[in-house]
Design a protein around this nucleic acid. Structure first.
Lengths: 251, 251
DNA sequence: CGAATAGTGTCTATCAGACAATATTGG
DNA sequence: CCAATATTGTCTGATAGACACTATTCG
C-alpha cells in the first residue's frame, strides 16, 4: 500500500515514563496524580505529548526533566544522570477514551534522589513501591488491600518496565544506574535484592561482581556509611554487557 | 502537561516489518521495492499505515498477510504460522521527508516458505541475505561491493531486528519459529548456525537441546531428508524461556 | 566399503553456590 | 567485648566444550 501523505489518519503521539529507583530497600516507581478527566484523581505514569518537531527520545528526556528535574545521562558528563531507554509502544484504539493516542513508553533508571520529586508539588507526585501496586492480570500484591489501578493502560506499561529492569540487570551493568556515582559492593547488592525481591549471598556476590571484567572500577576511597568494616568505593566500569551474567535465583 | 485532545499535533503512524527466515543456511530478510517517491526504486521493509481503529499488532499482522500471505501464529492452531513481536518505534522528525511519521517496527520469524513471497510479484519482493546488506554504521559486508542502503531508516530497523533475533534465540525457544512444525536436531542446529553465523559442535548441541526441559518434544517419527543416519523428528515444546540458555560462542 | 549424518560417552577446566574464617569498624 | 558489615578462602556439584566412539543410512 503506497503512502498518501495528504490523507493519513490523524494520530496523537505521547511518551509515558516508567521511572524506577531503589528507596529504602524497595523498588519504587514515580507516579503523578491526574488533575483532569479522564481518570481524574487517579495515579498515572508521567508523560505528555510529543511535539511535532521533536524526537521521541528528546520528548522523553524533556518530560523527565519537567516532572522530576532529572537529567538524562550525558556521554560527556560521566555517570551523573539517569539511564533512559525505549520500552515499548502502546496503541490500542480504545486506550484513551477521547481519541486515538499512540504512546511510546520509556524506561528510566535513576539513583535515589536526595530531593524526592523535585520540581513538582508533593500532593501530585510520589514514589510508589512497585510490589504494593496492582498488576494487570490481577495477581497478588504484597499485603493489604489492592490499590486503585493506574489510569489508562499504565499498570501494564509499568509491569512491562519492571520486568525489563529485572531481566536487564542480569546481563548488563544497568544496576549501577540505581547507584550514586560512587558506591560499595554492598549497596550494589542491595539494588539487586530490591529489584529482584530476593536475598543474595554477600560473599558470592562480592566475588562475582569484583571478578567480572569491566563491571566495577575501584576509586581508591572507602566508606563506612553502612556501619561495620569500611567498604571499598567503586564506580561503574565501561562494560555494558556482563559476561558471565549475574544469575537471578530461581523462584 | 495536561492533554488537549482538540489541539494535538498531527502524526502519521505506520508499521514496518522485519521478516526473517533461514534459507539455504543463511539468514534472510524480506524486502519490497518502492514504486514511488521518496526513495523510488529502492528496497525497503514491508509496511504501511495503521488504520485509525486498528490495533498496532493487528496492523502488523494485516500487512504481513497482504505482502507475504503469511498468517501469524494462532494459539488455537498449534505451531503453524509466524512469530510476531514488537521490535521498537522510530520517530525521528526527519525520517520521512514529507511529513512526521512515527513507525512501530515488528519482528517476524517464519520458517522457510515453499512459495517464496507468495501473493506478491517477483519483481518487487525478495529475500535478501542479511550478511550482504549494508549496515547503518557503514560496517563491513560479507564480500563484494556495498549494496544500496534501504529506504528511510530501514537499515537501522533491520539491524535492530537482526540483533533482537540473534540475542533472543539464546534464552528462548524462538529458534523453532524458523523451523517447520516437525524438524530434526540437525535442522535446528543449522538455524542457530545461520542466525549467529558460527559453527556449532553437533554433538554438544544435541546433548544440550535434548536435555533442556520443555524445549523439544519427540514426535516418534524419523526422517532421512538430510542424508546419513535417520534422525528423530521433534516439535517445539511448551517452554518459551530456556534455562539454562543456549550459549552463543564468543566472537 | 566409504561418506555422511545421528547420537552417546568421557574427560577436564570452570563456575555457581554453600559456608568457614578473618578483617575492621562503632557502640 | 559484641554486633555488624566487608572480604577472602575452600569445598562440592554441575556443566560447557573438546573429542573418541558407535549407529544407520545411501551410493
Amino acid at each position: 500500500m503506497p503512502y498518501d501523505p495528504s490523507a493519513f489518519p490523524p494520530f496523537a503521539v505521547t511518551v509515558d515514563l516508567v521511572v524506577l529507583t531503589v528507596r529504602r530497600h524497595a523498588l519504587c516507581a514515580l507516579l503523578v496524580r491526574r488533575g483532569e478527566p479522564p481518570y481524574q484523581g487517579r495515579w498515572a505514569l508521567p508523560g505528555g505529548f510529543v511535539r511535532i518537531d521533536e524526537d521521541l527520545e528528546a520528548a522523553a528526556a524533556r518530560e523527565l526533566a519537567e516532572e522530576t528535574g532529572l537529567q538524562v545521562q550525558d556521554p560527556g558528563s560521566g555517570h551523573v544522570g539517569a539511564h533512559l531507554e525505549q520500552l515499548a509502544t502502546y496503541g490500542d484504539p480504545r486506550r484513551d477514551p477521547r481519541m486515538r493516542v499512540v504512546s511510546v513508553a520509556y524506561l528510566v533508571l535513576a539513583p535515589d534522589l536526595p530531593s524526592p520529586t523535585a520540581g513538582g508539588d508533593a500532593h501530585s507526585v510520589r514514589w510508589a513501591q512497585v510490589d504494593t501496586l496492582s498488576t494487570p492480570g490481577g495477581g497478588p500484591v504484597r499485603d493489604g488491600d489492592r490499590p486503585a489501578p493506574l489510569a489508562f493502560d499504565h499498570d501494564r506499561i509499568l509491569a512491562d518496565g519492571v520486568e525489563r529492569a529485572r531481566s536487564k540487570i542480569e546481563y548488563s551493568s544497568l544496576a549501577t544506574a540505581f547507584c550514586p556515582p560512587e558506591f560499595t559492593v554492598g549497596e550494589l547488592r542491595r539494588v539487586y535484592e530490591a529489584v529482584w525481591g530476593v536475598a543474595l549471598d554477600p560473599r558470592n556476590f562480592h566475588r562475582k561482581v569484583t571478578g567480572t571484567p569491566g563491571f566495577l572500577v575501584p576509586t581508591g576511597g572507602t566508606t563506612t556509611r553502612q556501619g561495620g568494616r569500611p567498604a571499598q568505593l567503586f564506580r561503574a566500569g565501561g562494560a555494558t554487557l556482563l559476561n558471565p551474567p549475574m544469575l537471578r535465583p530461581e523462584i
